[in-house]
Design a binder for these strands. Sequence first.
DNA 1: GCCTAAGTGCTTTTT
DNA 2: GCACTTAGGC
Length: 692
Amino acid sequence: MDLSKLNDKQKEAVMHIDGPLLILAGPGSGKTRVLTNKIAYLIENNYAMPIQILAITFTNKAAKEMKDRVYKLVGKSAFDVQLSTFHSFGLRILRENYQELGLNKTFTIIDESDSLSLIKKILKDLNIDEKMLSPKYVKNRISSSKNSLIDVLEYSKYSKGDIEEKVYEIYKKYQELLIKNSSVDFDDLLFMPVKLFRKNKQILEAYQELFKYIFIDEYQDTNEAQYVLAKMIASKYQNITVVGDESQNVYSWRGANYKNILNFEKDYKNVTTILLEQNYRSTKTILNAANDVIKNNKERKEKNLWTNNDLGEKIKYIKATDEKDECRIVIEEIKKLNHKMELKDMVVLYRTNAQAQIIERTFLENNIPYKIVGAYTYYSRKEIKDLLAYLKLINNTKDDVSLIRCINTPKRGIGKKTIEDLELEAKRQNKSLFDVIKDGKEGTFKKIIENLIKAKDNISLTELVDLILTKTGMIDEYKKENTIESISRVENLNEFKSITKEFEEETGNISLEDFLLEISLVSDINENKSEINGVSLMTLHSAKGLEFDLVFVMGLEDGIFPHINSLDSLEELEEERRLFYVAITRSKEYLYLLNANTRLLFGSKTANPPSRFIKEIDEKYIEKDNIKEEFNIEDSFYEDEVFYEIGDQVYHETFKNGIVVSLDKDFVTIAFSRKYGIKKLMKNHKSLRKVW
DNA sequence: GCCTAAGTGCTTTTT
DNA sequence: GCACTTAGGC
C-alpha cells in the first residue's frame, strides 16, 4: 500500500499500531485520509481481521464516505469492518442481546416525533397541563438524562422540586411504556449497551475481545454515553484511535462534551498525540479568516494551522435588502461562477431548516439543479408514517404507538372513545392493544392486520407493502380525494415500493424486521443519492466533514446566526462561533457571507443587525461586493448602552412608532403597528431610538 | 365520530 | 406562515 502521498505526521499516525492514539486534526488536514489508510494498513499487514475493527462516525454520510474510501483501498473486506455511526453500532449490540435487555426480537425503534407523542400522551394520562410543563422540555430532560447515563432510578435521587418530580414521574412512565411496547428510542441505542455491559461482564468481554482496534471520528462530539461505551470496549486492548478538533464541537446541545478530547491524555495511559496542522483544503485567505474567528473562543488547545495554498480570492460579504433579495444574490453569483466549477462543488449553508424553504423556491424558479441534504424527510411525511405504522405493527404487535396511529387511518369510524375503552381494557388485562383486539369481536381492522401477519412470511417485502396499500384502503382514499396534495401522497406511497425493491435487490430477500431497523436510523431516502450534479443546500451542522469549492453562508445576522437562543450564554455563543468556524473551513476557494436588512420571521417582518461574527474577520480578507453600507458594522450600533423601560415610546426606521413591552439583556421587545406586530430587536441598534 | 373554524405557539442544530 | 390543537355543531 502506498503511503507516499501522506505527510510525515499523517504517516506516523497511520503506522502507529498499539496503544491509544490521539489525533488532533484541524479542518482540511486529511484526517479521513489518515483514518481510512490506517484501517487499510491494519488489514493489509495482518494486524487485524476486518471484523476486528470498529470504526465510528457521527453521521450516516460520514460512515458511507469512509466505507467507500476503505473499499477503494482494500476492496471487499471493507464490508466486514464494523464501520458505522454510534447509533447503528448500538443497534447491533441490541440486536445481538435483545433478550438480556427485555426486548422482543422484533423490537421497534421509535423516532423523535413518536417519542414526543408518547410523552404528550403520558402528560395527558397524568393530568399535567402542557402549558405548565411542555412536552418538548420533558423530552429534552429525558434525552439528556439518557445521554448522561442517568436512568429512572438514578433520576429519582436528583429530582428535587415540583417540576423535577413531575419529570421523574413521566420519565418512569415513558420507560415502562417503551419496554411494554418492546420499543427503544434513539438514546436507548447508546444507553442500553452501556447498561448491558455494566450488568454482564461476560458479554462486555466478548466485545472487547472482538474489537481489537477501535477508531472514533469527531471525538469532540461524543456525549457521556458514547464516551463510556467506547471506553468500555477499548479498556482491554487499549488500541483506540480518536480523531477530532475541539474547535469543531457543535453538538453540545446534544450532550457532546468537547472535554472528552481534551481529557483523552488523562483518560488513557501512554497516549501518543499527533497534531495535524497542515491544511490542504483552503486558500490562505479562508484559513486566516477562520483563525481570526476561532481565536475569540477561550477554551481550546492552541493549534497552528497553516497551508501552502495560495492567498486566493477575497471573501465576499454581501448585504441584501430582505430574504428574497438574499436568495436572488446567491442565484446570481452561482450563474456567474458556474463556468469555473460544477454545481455539485457549490453549497448553500443556513442556520435553521426554516430558511431552506425560500431558498429552495428560488432555486426552483430559476431552474438551477439542487439537492437538499437532511431537512425535509421523506420518512416523516404523514402518509409514509402511516404506512410505516402498519409495517411496524405487523412486525411487532406490542407496538401500541403504531397501532393507535393506524387503527383509524383511513377512517374506519374508530374514534377517541373506542380507543380509550381499548386502552382501559388493555391496562386491566396488562396486555397490548392488539392482544385485546385479537381476543375481541371481529372488525375490519382486526381482519386486515391478522391477514397481513399471516401473509408477511410468504411474500416479499414489496408485495407486503403493496398489500397494505390496497387492503387498508390507503391508496383508494387518497385517489378518491384527487387533489394535488393527495396525488403527491399516492406518488410518495408508490415510491416506497421502489425503496423496498432496492433493498431486496441489494440484500436478497430482506426481512421486515431488518428493513425497519435499517431505515429507522436513516432520515432521508435521498441520503445516498448524492450523484445529481446540483448545488447542495444544507444546515451548517450537516456540512461538517464536507468540503466545497464555493460556500455561501446565509442569514449572518444576530438572532439567526448566532441564533437568538444562544445570545445569553457565553458557552452557547462560543458554540455558534465554532459553527461559523466549521462553515468557513468548508470552503476550498470561494466564500460568500450574506445577510439581509429585514426578513420574514414567524410570519412577520423583522430587522436583525449583522452577525457579530463578521467583524471578527480581518477586513483585509473581505471584499465588500456591492454593499452600500460601510464595512464597519459597528456603525450600525450605538456605542453606549441604551436604557429602555417597559412602556417607553420608540421609533424604528422601518417599523415606525412602537411601545416597549418587555426587556432582556441585549434585546427589547416592541409592539409596533398592526402591520408590523411585535418584534424583538437589539437595544443598541441605530435604526431604533427612544422618543421622549 | 367527523368536520370545520378559530386559536395557539413556534424554529436551532441530528441519530 | 404554517402546522398543530381544540371546541362546538352536525
